[in-house]
């Protein structure tokens, strides 16, 4: 039995650790958390296996055999030493785990002085049902703080998010970073991450916030420092050059539709190759829509609610998050895309 138990727990632990359940490690924090998780697995699997083994072997060894119908077990009422042991040992184990988690907590939340110096500070605003990100002026280099619906982070640089909410409680979570915190109306919450891996990762709203909760998604792009700077340049200059040709304008608009503004997340539009299901299929509804209609549809979605859809699903803040030129480009693009 003891042997069986040992083998079983060995297998259990190996399974727990070998199969890599975690998302790929992409931040210093995630690294810490996964180690903690491994420790927790090593600590808890044996406990579960212990209980399992005792139950199973009890069933095997002390199962009522024919003829024992009226027999009773020995009247054992207790055993102090045993009871002390199984009170003290778990207590110690628990305290050990707590102490370790406390250390990890410090590590994932604080930042070394050297890091702090070049730390990036990004504002995150949750709103039914979309995220908006604000890069401070000194970072964006533009004439005003840069606010966009696209999150781009430089690699290996500690980022501090200041998270707020415009309406109800949301939760800003990047699973691959292993960090999350609620966006609470009325207060600003924070957390830090240090991205350590290039790539594009999902952003998820993890707190029930209404009918659009499941679609309150976005993407974070982790890029090299210079790509980051380049992107900032890109953002701060107007979407399309002054007096751009309709073609250029449309091209810019298309890029905004699929990228910056994330319209494609909710809307199907053949020309842009997006297949979102939350909002109406723009190929259908925009047929013959005038530029004005389209513009109001975007800046004030609740003015006309498309048939079969609820109000307050489509974010009402695009006028803020998109620069006028971007908006023009977007509208121009939608108009001609619809025309096709």
């Amino acid at each position: 039995m003891v042997l069986g138990g040992l083998v079983a727990s060995a297998i259990g632990i190996v399974l727990g650790l070998a199969i890599d359940w975690f998302p790929t490690i992409t931040s210093a924090q995630a690294d810490q958390v996964e180690t903690l998780y491994d420790v927790l697995v090593i600590a808890s699997v044996p406990i579960f296996v212990l209980v399992m083994t005792v139950v199973i072997s009890a069933v095997i060894r002390f199962r009522m055999r024919p003829g024992q119908e009226n027999e009773d077990g020995p009247p054992i009422h207790g055993n102090t030493t045993l009871e002390v042991i199984w009170t003290v040992l778990p207590a110690l184990l628990i305290l050990g785990l707590c102490a370790y988690s406390y250390v990890v907590l410090q590590d994932v939340e604080d930042v070394s002085a050297s890091e702090a110096a070049k730390e990036l500070n990004i504002g995150v605003t949750g709103q039914q049902f979309a995220w908006t990100f604000t890069y401070p002026q000194e970072v964006s280099g533009g004439d005003k703080p840069l606010s966009t619906t696209e999150l781009v982070l430089p690699i290996d640089r500690s980022v501090k998010f200041d998270i707020q909410s415009k309406d109800v409680i949301h939760d800003f979570w990047v699973p691959d970073f292993s960090m999350k915190i609620d966006a609470v109306p009325g207060i600003t919450t924070h957390y830090r991450v240090t991205p350590e891996r290039l790539g594009t990762y999902p952003i998820v709203c993890a707190e029930l916030c209404g009918l659009g909760h499941s679609v309150m998604r976005n993407r974070v792009r982790v890029v090299s420092e210079q790509d980051f700077q380049a992107w900032l340049q890109e953002q701060s200059k107007p979407a399309a050059p002054e007096n751009a040709s309709p073609a250029q304008l449309a091209a810019a608009g298309k890029q905004i539709f699929t990228g910056t503004a994330g319209c494609g997340g909710c809307h199907t539009l053949a020309d842009a190759g997006t297949t979102g299901q939350i909002g109406p299929d723009l190929d259908q509804v925009l047929k013959g829509a005038s530029e004005e209609e389209i513009r109001t549809d975007i800046v004030d979605p609740n003015q006309t609610i498309a048939k079969g859809y609820g109000p307050d699903v489509m974010p009402g803040n695009f006028e803020q998050t998109l620069s006028p030129s971007e908006l023009d480009a977007l509208v121009a693009y939608l108009e001609e895309a619809a025309a096709r």
Partner: peptide
């Protein structure tokens, strides 16, 4: 549940 009590782990899996 005890794993969930460990704050850093809970931060990752809370609401999942």
């Amino acid at each position: 549940g005890v794993m969930l009590a460990m704050i850093p782990f809970d931060i990752h899996v809370s609401d999942t």
